[in-house]
Design a protein around this nucleic acid. Structure first.
Lengths: 224, 224
DNA sequence: GCTAGATTTTTCCAACTGGTCAAAAATCTT
DNA sequence: AAGATTTTTGACCAGTTGGAAAAATCTAGC
């Protein structure tokens, strides 16, 4: 009995990934996004993902040997794109314009990538068990940096003096709400207002909120 | 073959619930809240809940014959208390005061009942499969009613004219964020600012946001 | 057209999960 | 204290799930 442990993972030379491999992996990740975002990590089954991806479970496991591997890959890739809009906020630009377009971009992401938003929200709800370090390091660093930018704008009297961190939180919260709580939003708005137009309404509203708050503009006449 | 189906549920006279029954049910619901809010419906197991509740699985099942029954009970009770603050918003009161205390109350709920908030958020994320009708009927009705109140205040020039529905959404989103995304908030704020004080900071910030937005107050001097 | 390596399918399994059931233990009633 | 009722437990089960093993098929280079 030769003690030759058969090498399960033929990572001998670590080939650079064939075309098929890349394609299949993408298919799987797309399917996984669909399923994970709808049911959460534990709620999703490999079988489901495999079915959506149009392949058998063992075949899927050939490309990603663990369920968690799929999830982790998905979510860490997501985090990068998810933070892109914030990264783009430019100290050199006009503060109001920058903030406004940041909000708009985030809202567009909620509209165009609701699955990503929900996946992320779910991970947070669960206490971010898979990306603890990423949020404690990368995310924190980015927010710290942008908070400084906001702070500088405040110092210059260009925007109101408030807490830059909570300002960022409130932008995240208000925009992602439209993806994460979509059912609720649609149910409350009803058939007539719950259509696609809701995002434009939201954009208008949020712009107003962040620009002026609820203080009435001096310009409406008397009442009654 | 006598067709006497033996009555599994001896609901003969529908006894009014003994003390023990009430107590145990409460214990179970409390444990279920803990577990469901942490892992979601599918992620939670009856065994886990039973363990937290300090009883055996079959014993727990004696009080709630189905897992879903526990969940449903929990979440429908929750919805009522969850909406209480909004219900309290009084048309007769001063608009700014009313809105401000609504925000404060919601934020307090995020601080004091984060598990409830997360349970609710999770249900929404999943598309609200257990409370579809409740949100489409009761919730909608309540929001419609309060939207009218807000609208009236706007008509009277007491608060700025904006979309009352999205205003409510933004209050929900910003306040619940501190419960649902707690990990993220704490990670970003870091050790020094992530302590209990974060809720006070949030309260101050949100008050500013909703009262004034980001428009700088005229009163800070010139700069540089 | 042959063969090494890559891919896919078939079969299988052990752990877990929601839930059942009968009997035992505890509690209540009289 | 006996009998009736409620509560608790231990053993069990069927379905699901993540994953392993191996056999079968395919593909590219020779």
């Amino acid at each position: 009995m030769p003690a030759a442990g058969r090498p399960k993972k033929p990572k001998a030379t670590a080939r650079p990934l064939t075309r098929i491999q890349r394609e299949k992996q993408d298919t799987i990740l797309e399917a996984a996004l669909e399923v994970f975002s709808a049911h959460g990590f534990r709620g999703a089954t490999i079988d489901q993902i495999a079915e959506v991806a149009g392949m058998s479970k063992p075949n899927l496991l050939y490309y990603f040997p663990r369920k968690e591997e799929i999830y982790r890959r998905l979510i860490s890739e997501l985090l990068v794109t998810w933070l892109a809009p914030l990264r783009e906020m430019d100290e050199e630009g006009d503060p109001f314009t920058e903030i406004r377009s940041y909000i708009r971009r985030k809202l567009e992401m909620a509209r165009d990538f609701p699955r990503e938003s929900r996946l992320f929200a779910n991970e947070m709800l669960r206490g971010a068990p898979h990306i603890e370090d990423m949020i404690a390091i990368d995310l924190k660093a980015l927010v710290d940096e942008k908070a400084k930018v906001l702070l500088a704008w405040m110092e210059q009297g260009k925007i109101a003096r408030t807490d830059p961190y909570h300002l960022i939180f409130s932008i995240w919260a208000t925009t992602q709400h439209y993806a994460d709580f979509d059912v609720q939003v649609r149910a409350v708005l009803g058939k007539d207002r719950g259509g696609e137009g809701r995002f434009e309404d939201a954009a208008r509203y949020l712009e107003h909120l962040f620009m002026h708050g609820l203080t009435p503009r001096p310009h409406s006449g008397s009442t009654t």
